[in-house]
Amino acid sequence: MADSPVIEREKCDGCGLCIDVCHCNILVLVDNVITVIEEKKCVSCNRWCAQCEMICPTGAITIPFDVVIEER
């Protein structure tokens, strides 16, 4: 199961806005396509902020969440 942002390479236009907004510094451009490095660091903020998904103008990044009910 993916534990970091999911990138659709063909949608990425290499604008780099997601790199700017990422608090955990896990995104870099490789061959002008956004790439995730150090997947585990994506949770440095202890929650997926999803700022990269929000800022991406082409919808190339998604952060998939599980929705679960807390067991009591």
């Binding site: 949770v43 202890n46 998904e53 599980d66 679960v68």
Partner: peptide
């Protein structure tokens, strides 16, 4: 809009209905 989703999740968290933790939205 995508921006409204982030805002809505934050509101639901503020109201104590959910908690955002890593890749999970936990319904509390």
């Amino acid at each position: 809009a995508r921006e409204m989703i982030g805002r809505s999740l934050k509101s639901l968290e503020d109201e104590g209905a959910i908690r955002l933790h890593r890749h999970r939205i936990v319904i509390t």
